[in-house]
Computed example of a mutant assay.
Amino acid sequence: MKLLLVALSLLMLAGCSKGLSIDRSHPSANHDNRVQFVVLHYTSADEARSLQLLTHGEVSSHYLIGDRSATVYQLVDESQRAWHAGDSQWDGRTWLNSSSIGIEIVNPGYKDTPNGRVWYPYSEAQIQAVIALLKDIVQRNGIAPRNIIGHSDIAPLRKTDPGPMFPWQRLAEQGLGIWPDAQAVARNQARFQVSPPSISWYQQQLARLGYNVVQSGELDVATRHVIAAFQMHFRPQRFDGEPDAQSAAILQALNSR
C-alpha cells in the first residue's frame, strides 16, 4: 500500500511539472537593461590582496584590473549583483549595486606625507585595459556616457576613488564619459567671475548632473564634499570644495550639452 501511495504521489508531481504552460507570444516593449551604470574604483591594495578581498571578503566587483600586466579578471558575472557601490546614489537612483557594473583597478590610492597628500598614478597598460573593457561593456549594455562614473561621484561623503589621477578626459574623448567644451567653459567663467552664482544654483546644477546633494541653499559640509567630488572628476588640478567661477563654468557647460 505504501509503495502504491508513493507511486501515485510521484505521478502527481510529474503531472504538475509537465502541466505548466507559458505563452511567450506577447513580448512587451516596455523594458530596458538592468545595467544602467559603470562605477570605477581603486582598490587601495596590491594585486594579490585585492584578489583576496574581492573574492573572499565582504566586497566584490565584476572586474578587477591588475597592476603590472593589467590583467583583466572577471570576478562576478554581469548578470549577478556585485557588492562594490554600497550606500550610493546617482541621477535619482539609489543603492547602485543593483543597477551597475563595478570595475576595480589595482592602485594604492594615496598616502599622506608631511608635505600633503600624494596620489598614485595609473599605468598606461591599466588605462588601455580600462578603455577596452568599457567599450565592450558599453556596446553590449547600451550604457549612456554620462553614466560612466566614479565611486566618489555616487558616494561623495565617504569615497575618493578612483581619485584625481584617473584620466576622465581621456576616457571621454573615447566616448566613455562626458567632458565640458573648453570654449564654453571660458565663456561661462568670464561671466561667473563678474556675477557669481548662489549656493542654491550650485546645488541645483549638481543635482541636474546626477549628484545627490541636499537643496539647503547653504554651503554646508555635505555640499562641499559634493563640489569636491565634482571637481575631482572634472577639474582634478584643484578639488578643494570651494564654489569658484571655474567650477561653476564647468558645471554650466556640462549641463548645457
Rank of each mutant, 00 (worst) to 15 (best):
S100C: 12
I101N: 11
I103Y: 00
V106Y: 01
G109Y: 02
G109T: 03
G109F: 03
Y110L: 08
Y110S: 13
D112A: 09
T113S: 08
P114E: 14
N115A: 15
G116P: 10
P121I: 07
A125S: 10
A125E: 05
Q126W: 00
Q126H: 05
Q126E: 02
A129G: 11
V130E: 06
V130G: 08
I131R: 08
A132D: 08
A132E: 10
K135D: 05
D136Y: 01
V138R: 14
V138E: 10
V138H: 08
R140S: 05
N141E: 12
G142N: 13
A144K: 11
R146Q: 13
N147G: 00
I148Q: 00
I148Y: 00
G150W: 02
I154A: 05
L157A: 14
D161I: 13
D161G: 14
P162G: 09
G163Q: 08
P164D: 00
M165C: 11
M165F: 04
F166Y: 07
W168L: 04
W168A: 12
Q169D: 11
R170T: 15
R170E: 15
L171K: 03
E173C: 03
E173T: 10
L176I: 14
L176T: 15
D181T: 12
A184T: 15
A186G: 03
N188A: 14
N188Y: 14
Q189R: 13
A190P: 07
A190W: 10
F192M: 08
F192S: 08
S195A: 14
P196I: 13
S198D: 10
I199K: 14
I199C: 13
W201L: 09
W201Y: 12
Y202A: 05
Y202N: 03
Q203Y: 08
Q205M: 13
Q205V: 12
Q205T: 06
L206C: 07
L209N: 10
V214S: 14
Q215I: 13
S216N: 01
